[in-house]
Structure formats: C-alpha cells, structure tokens
Design a protein around this nucleic acid. Structure first.
Lengths: 335, 335
DNA sequence: TTGTATGCGTTATCAC
DNA sequence: GTGATAACGCATACAA
C-alpha cells in the first residue's frame, strides 16, 4: 500500500494524495475527504524511509543517555518519553557507556539518522568543546551546564550542582556534624562529579571543616554497587565520620547498606544525604534525605527548549532548575 | 557525501563501493582497500533511509515496553540494550502505557519502521490472540508465555509465574505464617497478574490457608505508589496478616514503607517477599526477600532467540527461565 | 572483478 | 486544484 495505490483507488494523482497526507492547503474538500477515507479503509501508513530520504532528514528526536545504572536518568527518560509522546516526533533512545564520548556518538548518529534534535543526558564539557562543532542541529544538554560553551545550537538544563552540593553539606554541618565523608562522582571525567565535589569543598572551607580529599572523598560511578564499595573504603580509613553526602541517590542507597553491614545505623550513627530526589527515595526506610531536583521539571524544560529551537527557530538558552534540600529520615542532629 | 562521491574519489563505480560497504565477496583486495580508505578519510556514513527504502526494511530491532514504572523492565531494557549493542542492529525502544494495546502499537510501528524483529516486554494474551496475525516478523514475548498461542513467529521467554508465586507463598507459609495478604497485579488486564494470583491460590489451597480474595488481595499496577496504597487498604481491613507477598519488587518496596507508616516492622511484625530480584533489592535495609528471576538471563535468552529467528530462520521457541526463592532479610519465622 | 541502469515511496517543481 | 515527473541515496540485476 503506497500513495500510488491510494491515488489509483481514489482516481487522484499521487501529488494530491501527498498534499492531503501532509495537510497542505491547495486541495479541494472533496478530494481531501475521498483520500482520507481511502487512507482509513486501507490502513495505509506512510513509508518513513522514503519520506525521510526525500526530505533529507527524519522527524525524530534523539536522546543520548550516558551511563545506564543511574536510576536518575531512567526517570528522566521516562518523563521525556511521555512529554515527547504528546507530539508527533518519534523518540530514539541511545544508551552509551559512562566512559564513552557522547558527542562523537551523536555525530555518528546524526549522519546516520538525521534527527531533528538531540537531548544529551549527562555529558562531559571537553567532549563538547572538541567535537560539538560537527553537530548542526539543536541540542539540549540535560544535567550539565553548557552556558560557558560557545555554541549557539547547544542549550542546557541543569541544577546548580556546585551550590546544591554545598547546601547539602551545609545541611549536614548545620545538624552539628563535624566529620564528613563524601561519595561523589569521578572528578576528572564527569563535570557533574567535579562540580559537586567543588561544592563540598566550598562548604567545608566556609565552615572550617577539616576535609581531606584523599581520605574523605571517593570518586566513583553513579551506581548502587559503587556507592556501596566506596563507603566501605571510606569506613576502612576509620575517619569516624558521622555524616555522609552521596552525590546521587543510587550511591546513597548503596552507602546506607554498606554502613548497615558495618554495624552502623542510619541516621542514628551516620546521617546520609543523597542527590537527585528519586521517587524511590520516599519509599525507603528510612526515607532518603536528598537534594531534590524536579526530574519532571527538568524533562519538561528540556523538551520545551528543544521543541522551541526546532519549531520556532529559537536560539540556545540555559536554564537552571531549582533544587530543594529535603531532610527526610536519613539525616539527624549530631549528638 | 554519498556512495557516488566515494565512487568518484576512488575511480570505482557505485556498485563496487556498495559491495565493499556491505562486505560482499566479489571485490578485489585493491578496490576494497582503496574504498575503505576513502570511507575513513571522508567520514562517510551510509544513509539509512535510502538503504532501508531500497531494502524494504530496516535492520533495526524494536522493543515495546509496557508500563513505565516497573523497574524490572528498566533492568531488562538495560540488559537487552547491552546485548544488542554487540551486534550491528540499531535498537529502538518504545514505551507505552500499561493500559495500551501493545500489539496494535507494534502493528503500526511495523508498517512505519519495518524492523527486523520485536521484543515485547510485558503483554496481554488477548491482544495477541486478536491482532498478532497482522505481524509477520519474528517476535519474542518477554515475561509472558506465548506457548499456548498459535503463532509460529512468536517466541516467549518467561518464568513459570504461577509456580513461582506459589513457591513464594509456600515459603511464607513454611515460615509459620497463617494469615497472608497479597499485593498483586490486575488479574483481568495482565496475564502476569492473573498467573501469580492463581499461584497464590494454589498455595493457600494446598496448605489449607484461609484466603479471601476480596479482603486479602489487591490487584494494582506495578509501581511503588500502587504497592504502598494497596498495602494501606489491606491494613485497613484489619485481617491481621503476618506476611505479605508482593508480585513485584517495586510493590514490595511500597508495601514495606506502608507497613512502617502504620507502625509495623519488617520482618518482625510482617514478613514481606517480592518478585523479580531487582539489583536494588540487595541494597535495601532490610534486604528484600524475593522470587529472583535472572533478568540478565531473560534478556540474553530473548535476544538469542530473536537473533536466531532473524539470522538463522529458526522457528519460535518457548523458554522457561528458572527462578529462585531468595529469603533475605525481609522475611522471618512467624512467632 | 567491475560498471550501468533501474526502482524503492515519497516530496516538490513544474506545467496545466 | 490537480497531475506528471524528477530527484533523494542506495542495492542489485544484468552487462561487460
């Protein structure tokens, strides 16, 4: 079933059929009606390949997700998915390893699939600086800032990671904790990791807290297991911390289990605060204290910006979404 | 940059270039070398649309995920993703609401994208019975059985849900529990929900346990919140259950939180066992007892079967993957 | 072993 | 308003 068949069935030409299919104006009501009827009756579906070959692009939107074990990105993908589902654009989700170069991957995907726009979930500034010039379609970097990068087709939606991490540490310190440990991200390969680390330092410096990066910080991947392992290593050093900041909720969950396995209670012996505000966190026992960033809001903003760039040729913009320090049940006053 | 350009650059014809690109034999080493060199230097990427238009199909594999809040499917998608990444096939993931008709969705997607094969994550037999005949490419239904369905292009990979649920209940009963509650799936719209429910009844019947579906069973969606709400409703009825079986780990997590909020301890007051064996479960406090099905194994089997059908024209097969009752920390002997 | 020519299903540019 | 027809980039049958 092609538009040719449709043309034959209705007695019109392929051009008219194509016009109807694309909601173009110069078609008589009669023709439109007849053709639409034929479309419905025949169950015709347009051949996306032919259309896109002709148009030299697809109408799809691409999501490049960096790292797979981070539940935060799962929630984000879910929200983006349901947001995009309201539009006509097909969504393509591509997962790559945390170590891969997301920009090069996108460049390759662009050539192959010619999407309308790209959402990057996670990313590394260096990769963008080196290779993003090769990408010409509108893109949004989600969860990292791109406001310092000189690309007018690259927007970003992010939390102020540095400030948020500082506030998380401030909260712990505000509860009377003086010995703090941090399970963070890789400072070298992850902007997010670096910024949240810097926020930690900001807080320690401001409050005159003794913090030795070599001993009190572990930079790992954003996963349950890495959070667990990192916490075990921190405990081995016997620094007697009474509070722990994990730069992602998944790591916080791993950390809590590690503390428990080492005979420590949360929050009685060690307060733990995470980062992300996963839905899951509110169902845990204890409910996870966290730096809550509205995943839904981030998803909405990202999609909104991308569609604005695509449909209304808007320029790049850089949104900072708010965060809230949520002290739930995994943190308490230091006694 | 097209194969025409490549042909001009190398002095060969487009056919030869095409042959090299598709690893076909009848090409001289010299030509192959020269063309491959040109490909690398020019950064040429084949135009997927043109290729697929010509071939009347794409080489992509489609995953249709039913329901988005079930972490089990997230883990499954992740495993499938990494498994498929080892091949040349692009993966297309489509999420639909738990209430949607996955088969009709797939039919539409087939016409539009012409994939090589489909993996269904979750599904309803009725939908398959009514509409699957419209799909001609190989498909695998993951987490539901299709062995009773009369389609030779539909394979399935699943756990014996009914038996597994029975064994979960058996385990609780074996611990001395006599009053049991179940947070399960929707028996009408989900095969999985129905089978696991039947397994529960099997166990109760066998052990002479009093189980009143109206009072002791809640059929809801597979999500944290639904598990929470369902458990609250069960508690309101004051049936004094000492053990609870949740037909999915996400529901078990919601259930545990609900119990806690109602002043009950897990496992001291109520034992809880889930179903799925999520990675997350092992990091919770208490570690979640569960019916563990190897997500990785399911993913591997599914992909293997699908590729077998696609590449080696194998017929449909129906795999039952094993499960293990894992009693961790959320269940204990009834006192 | 290689090249030429055709057509896949669509859109868009012309004429009418 | 409408219909012929030429591309789009590729794979492939057929010729050489």
């Amino acid at each position: 079933m092609t538009i040719k068949d449709l043309a034959a069935m209705t007695g019109y030409g392929v051009a008219t059929v194509s016009r109807v299919l694309n909601n173009q104006p110069n078609v008589s009501d009669k023709a439109r009606k007849a053709i639409l009827k034929a479309v419905n009756e025949s169950g015709f579906e347009i051949n996306a390949n032919a259309k896109q070959l002709k148009q030299q692009r697809t109408n799809s939107i691409l999501v490049v997700v960096k790292g797979t074990s981070n539940e935060m990105f799962s929630e984000l993908v879910e929200s983006i998915q349901s947001k995009i589902a309201e539009t006509e654009y097909p969504l393509f989700v591509d997962y790559i390893d945390e170590d891969f170069n997301e920009v090069l991957r996108a460049v390759s995907l662009c050539r192959e699939k010619k999407p309308l726009g790209i959402l990057f979930l996670g990313g590394n500034s260096d990769h963008f600086i080196n290779d993003f010039e090769k990408i010409e379609i509108p893109c949004v970097l989600v969860s990292n800032s791109a406001s310092d990068l000189p690309f007018d087709n690259l927007s970003s939606v992010t939390t102020d990671d540095r400030l948020a991490a500082k506030k998380a540490m401030d909260a712990l310190i505000g509860l009377g904790h003086k010995r703090l440990a941090v399970v963070g991200g890789d400072r070298e390969h992850s902007d997010t990791g670096r910024l949240r680390y810097e926020g930690c330092l900001d807080s320690c410096t401001e409050h005159g807290i003794d913090f030795d990066t070599k001993l009190d910080y572990e930079g790992v991947r954003f996963s349950y297991q890495d959070g667990y392992d990192a916490t075990c290593r921190l405990l081995e050093r016997d620094r007697k911390f009474t509070a722990l900041f994990a730069a992602a909720d998944v790591m916080a969950i791993g950390a809590i289990r590690a503390l428990k396995d080492n005979g420590l209670r949360v929050p009685e012996d060690v307060s733990v605060i995470g980062f992300d505000g996963l839905t899951l966190g509110s169902f845990l026992v204890p409910k996870l204290s966290t730096v809550e960033q509205s995943v839904k809001l981030m998803a909405e903003k990202s999609v909104e910006i991308l569609l604005g760039c695509i449909e209304r040729k808007q320029g790049a913009s850089h949104e900072i979404v708010p965060f809230i320090i949520r002290q739930k049940e995994s943190t308490k006053q230091n006694s």
